[in-house]
Amino acid sequence: MEWVEAIIGHSEFVMLRAGRASSPPRQSVEDRSIILFPAGFGEGQVSARTRLRAGAESRIIAGMSLSREEVEHIAHLARLELSEEEKERYRQQLSAILEYAARLQALDTADIPPTASVLPPRSVLRPDEPRPGLRREDLLRNAPQVEDGQFRVPPVLE
């Protein structure tokens, strides 16, 4: 089994990512892709826990630092145009926030169900009866461009 040394740097947490850095991390709970250990964990301890939770081919990277390419990828997914200056600022700020958020990884939640809503699960269906909705002209009034009672947009395909 090949273990890359644990890099315990200046940050409070170090990060472990399964698989090669270039490949997409895996997502299942059993084969968790990202595990963070509090700073101070020695190499031996990391290896022991890693063997349990991450499997082979793991390596440890320090901190939680986003690359420029990752920031551009996220901005693309979010359909946000960012200036060069914004990209660099968000790279630094998101890295710091994510590093802070990494402390959650220290909690063992193997048997804890996720909470998506605090409400008790229940049926909220109502009878499917037609009824008046908002009027088309009222809804179109806020649109930047309208044509023939419809929203007008730039070409989708060239």
């Binding site: 994510l98 959650l104 996720p114």
Partner: peptide
């Protein structure tokens, strides 16, 4: 899973 999933569990 690592961020959103874990946050929902916590």
């Amino acid at each position: 899973e690592a961020y959103y999933g874990q946050a929902q569990k916590v």
